[in-house]
Design a protein around this nucleic acid. Sequence first.
DNA 1: CTCCTTAATGTTAACGTGTGCACAACATTA
DNA 2: TAATGTTGTGCACACGTTAACATTAAGGAG
Lengths: 333, 333
Amino acid sequence: MSVTIKDIARLANVSHTTVSRALNDSPLISEETRKRIKELAEKLGYVPNISAKSLVLEKSYNIGLFTSKKIDNMPTSFMYEVFDGISQVIEDKYNLVFKKLNDTDDIQANIPRKKYDGIIFVSVDVSDIKMLYKLDALKVPMVVLNRDLSDLGMYCVYVDEYSGTRNAIEYLIKSGHTKIAIIKGPESFITSRERYNGYIDALRENGLNVNELYIKMGGFTPDSGFEAMDSLLRLEDRPTAVFASNDLMAVGAMKACSRWNIKIPDDISILGFDDMDFSMYLSTSLSTVRKPRKLMGQKGASILLDILEKGQVSEKACILKTDLIIRESTKSR
Amino acid sequence: MSVTIKDIARLANVSHTTVSRALNDSPLISEETRKRIKELAEKLGYVPNISAKSLVLEKSYNIGLFTSKKIDNMPTSFMYEVFDGISQVIEDKYNLVFKKLNDTDDIQANIPRKKYDGIIFVSVDVSDIKMLYKLDALKVPMVVLNRDLSDLGMYCVYVDEYSGTRNAIEYLIKSGHTKIAIIKGPESFITSRERYNGYIDALRENGLNVNELYIKMGGFTPDSGFEAMDSLLRLEDRPTAVFASNDLMAVGAMKACSRWNIKIPDDISILGFDDMDFSMYLSTSLSTVRKPRKLMGQKGASILLDILEKGQVSEKACILKTDLIIRESTKSR
DNA sequence: CTCCTTAATGTTAACGTGTGCACAACATTA
DNA sequence: TAATGTTGTGCACACGTTAACATTAAGGAG
């Protein structure tokens, strides 16, 4: 049996109420008793019973970290890095409870109000919106990561993928490329769309035509990048630069080039997105757009903590910037 | 305010005890009332208050997923895949609470007994043993992943990295290689040691000398693989095959080769370990040893669930096998 | 009809914590 | 000196649930 405030109370010759107050730094208690009780508690190795606290305070000390099943189509490291950032900020203040949700899941039944003091939702797919609405209806403080939903009044932390891509494509244009292809990510992924829009706008606003033949579908996996690149290389009029919507597809694309005996970057430039840990060390190191995944987790967590502890937060949305990293896989024309 | 068993009791004209019994399928209740109460509960959208349950049952419904800070030196996808396997098995039965521990952390204070019904510890570094002893002393059911500690009477699920490596090296030997180098992982990592031992024994038992010059240190990162390979290529008598203790270092090693204009696999064969999602799609696809990371998580979780729910489990240790995947980066002599 | 057994339900207490209210001791003001 | 304010502490209850024990009703055996 572990030590309770009643045990401490008995030994200190006070009521358990006094102990409770002393340990919670209530102003109603004299400095002297507070010190005495705290020392005693420390000595006895007192640890508060979370269940009892939860029951009376209507707090669970749980933070739900949710995402959709679609996350399985993302590179495995993505979720972990976000996660890592979050848990760094949360520390021991809350339990971080991870769950993959289906949009068919009954959120009302499985995510009861009482179970989570706050929610961090990592959104990857547009269809997540259904779940987000349901979660929002629970009236539990929530922060959405990886997607801009400030219009709906939700707190969100996301990366400006549009500008990130646009800058990258503009860099290629400035380097003399005019025939620039894109390998898109999964149709329904938010990041895919943003990156695609950045690509399109960069071309348009620099007076370049959008060539439908240069737009290929991919699935964020190396093999889809391979296939897409393969079909680009079959074109009579090949592009001189290819933007792969993520590094994993860029790897596949590079492999296709090596099959066709196409030299990177001499024959074709390749640009990725994400900057994964291996990207710098590919045989031809990959130029890419670095996305601050861990930082996104940290920001999201600290906003949620602000809401939970201070009851308010300075701004509804936090937008993070990417960095363009130029390595060996891109070259001027 | 949410619905409680007392609310249901009032509406059903029974005592709250009856409701509790009905919902928990107690044999003390008539089939008829059980059905009636359950329907009513469903209709009212009753959700049990976990805190109250926890308080009286002395159960937290939390499972701690712990690892050491050293995990940061592992490829980011490793932890996530293990994690993913675990949460697949745990489902909604427990909360999965992730925490990185320092060996300086006061485990007695931070991981109180009551807080976790069970613990899954992912061990990467030999020094983790200190934490494991402390955790074991809490007398909370625990399963250790990625390491054999059955000697200490702990439940464990791990991969036979020794045999995996040994088979891989023997494959190289059978392919005619005699000058085989290794790029080791971080000195204190358990997997590094197992893989190294597999390498050494494979050479010895096949009558090959162990050449100290062919043993290089690495840190499981691409750049360390690059450096190690670079120094191997400076040798007068170069190896004809290199075993990189993980795929990330293999990537770095391949880059070093491309800098030296060394052709893989014609001049040198490269073999990795892990089989990461991109390994198959490197320009020269990587031969490697596939490690069932997700499966390890699943097995560990199901053993823990058995302990928690059935009170016992068939076997203390579960050993998983690797697969040797031969691709383009290795070639016979 | 009485006594005993059994099945179904109710009564009450308990888990560990926080809080509204009451109260005592003491200090301040008029 | 009486009235009022301030400070520190304790009492009793509440939170939602389970469980030991008590009670009731019904049915069967004598």
